[in-house]
């Protein structure tokens, strides 16, 4: 693990002295980072937990009242909450699945390309680096009824005509949101997969080839199983990221046509409606969902977290 080996040949007392000193120094060095990380997360979460037990609205501060778990009851009994949770999960599953496929193709191409590697790396990093809000605008304008090119380029497809109103119905609007999300985040996925791909030994692939395995067999029996760790880490990170989708929806539909996500719902309750009580209950539920989701992905797919943390 550590590059420092405890020097040998010294007395036990000095060794433990030295270990204690190292321990203290280590704690001192990580302290600032840990404090900054917790100050903005742990304390506000406790605050949210507390506020979620009150009926409390900033526009009527005098009516603050302890209501126990009533906020949770109203949230969990609400159809909008479940609709938004469903939307969020759907966006997560679809975008991660599509990104896995596209990202893998990207990674294969990048792995194989021998010329112009810099060009393709640059091209792929632009969506990664671009501001999500900008991506959302670019795609919103792409699908725009009066100013977008999708309708004029794809009018030959069934169901698309020059006056298809993409943001006028639930499914087309969800589609547009997902396209923007996929465009923006596929590069991240493909770079993680590329790193995994480069760890698969060429000899093994060559050996399979000699044994007469087809390209398809080599892919499924040799390459993918050996990339398992990388794929799982990529899925974990992207899934949790997609679950928090907010920017794209905010810019593209503002939640109209029932395209709202859990994050967007929470934001609206707190910031637009000043419902600190109900909003805090939603915040807590959102936090718990993320925990549950992370836990299930880790357990279900047996993700090696040591690898995710950069240990090893």
């Amino acid at each position: 693990m550590s590059a420092t080996a405890v020097p040998t040949g010294k007395t036990t007392a000095r060794t433990s002295d030295r270990a204690a000193g190292e321990n203290r120094l280590g704690l001192k060095l990580v302290a600032p980072a840990v404090v900054v990380m917790l100050i903005v997360t742990a304390w506000p979460m406790i605050q949210a937990l507390y506020l979620s037990l009150f009926q409390y609205r900033l526009t009527a501060p005098d009516e603050k009242e302890f209501v126990g778990l009533a906020n949770y009851a109203s949230v969990l009994g609400d159809s909008l909450f479940w609709q938004d949770t469903f939307n969020t999960l759907l966006i997560m599953v679809v975008t991660v699945a599509v990104e896995l496929v596209i990202g893998f193709v990207f990674a294969m191409v990048m792995h194989r390309v021998i010329f112009a590697r810099g060009v393709i790396r640059t091209a792929i990093l632009i969506p990664y680096g671009i501001i999500t809000v900008v991506s959302a605008f670019a795609w919103q304008f792409t699908f725009s009824l009066s100013n977008g090119w999708v309708n004029s380029w794809f009018a030959w497809l069934p169901g698309i005509s020059s006056d298809t109103n993409w943001f006028g119905d639930h499914w087309p609007a969800m589609f547009a949101i997902m396209v923007s999300e996929i465009w923006k985040t596929t590069p991240f996925m493909s770079l993680l997969l590329l790193a995994g791909l480069s760890q698969v030994s060429e000899d093994m692939i060559e050996a399979a080839k000699v044994d007469g395995a087809t390209w398809w067999q080599r892919l499924w029996k040799v390459i993918l199983p050996n990339m398992r760790a990388a794929i799982m880490v990529a899925v974990l990170f992207r899934a949790l990221d997609a679950f928090r989708i907010f920017d794209n929806i905010f810019v593209m539909t503002r939640g109209a046509q029932d395209t709202e996500s859990s994050s967007f719902l929470t934001y609206r309750q707190v910031i637009e409606q000043f419902q600190l009580g109900l909003g805090s209950a939603l915040s807590v539920l959102l936090f718990l969902s993320v925990l549950l989701l992370a836990f299930s992905i880790v357990k279900l797919f047996r993700v090696d977290l040591a690898q995710a943390r950069g240990e090893g």
Partner: peptide, 11 residues
């Protein structure tokens, strides 16, 4: 992995 939106209210 933290959902940033959860913090918006208390922050």
């Amino acid at each position: 992995m933290f959902p940033v939106v959860s913090l918006v209210g208390p922050l």
